[in-house]
Design a binder for these strands. Structure first.
Lengths: 118, 118
DNA sequence: GCTGGTTATGTCTGGGAAAACATATCGGAA
DNA sequence: TTCCGATATGTTTTCCCAGACATAACCAGC
């Protein structure tokens, strides 16, 4: 009952900001692991990249989606802000809505059957 | 009543196939102009690119979305197949559904106000 | 048998994004 | 005061895709 690997939804707003499955999964992984680096490992992306995505999100939203702290016993950590959690939830809602749409099934059925291809 | 320039929806299926605003607009332009090259001009993309997109779509769907003919008085032309029209219509439906969703408004409102930026 | 506009492809190259690599910094705990 | 794991960035390298350019094939009509 994990996320449907066959589909992802990318929203493209003006001025180049996009928000899609990658950022949503990253937010979720951060909220579940408590750190950017652990989230990066889970999603098999470099810390560099995960951090860059977080920075991009924080910059494009009215207030940060992720807040982080350095140092300490565990080296630091990160967590979703209230807005971060809300954005993630809204995105998942849109995903669910899409997944439930009959038009999506029709589109899928129109695709070539890839089950036997590499 | 034109398409919302602030938003675009990209569906990403397995094996690298994506279907988003660009391909949808191209299909629509082909159906309205009757040729790939005219559609490309309208959308300000090279014929090379427009044709490549058509080829990609035709390859990934069970049957072609666009059928074309060469030569003749007008040099040739292209038109949507029944499936092509159906795919386009379904995609627009999904767009509309998304646009009407309250979650999308919430996401937009959470973005930084870009009205005063370059 | 030319003409013209279109479809259909091949090739080359520059730029930009992603990955790889490298540090610097932080601070609680032991 | 040393250590560790995490945050925070700078720099370099790789690589792929987009666009530019070029050319062939097609065919109704004149």
């Amino acid at each position: 009952m994990e996320n449907d690997p066959r589909l992802s939804l990318r929203l493209h707003f003006i001025q180049g900001l996009t928000f899609g499955r990658g950022k949503a999964d990253l937010l979720q992984a951060i909220s579940e692991t408590g750190s950017i680096s652990a989230a990066g490992r889970r999603l098999e992306m470099s810390y560099r990249r995960a951090w860059a995505l977080v920075e991009e999100m924080n910059a494009h939203f009215r207030s940060p989606l992720v807040e982080s702290s350095r140092g300490g016993a565990k080296g630091g950590g990160a967590a979703l802000t209230e807005l971060g959690a809300a954005v993630l939830a809204d995105y998942r809602k849109l995903e669910d809505m899409l997944r439930a749409a009959p038009e999506l099934d029709r589109l899928r059925n129109a695709l070539t059957d890839m089950s036997e291809q590499k």
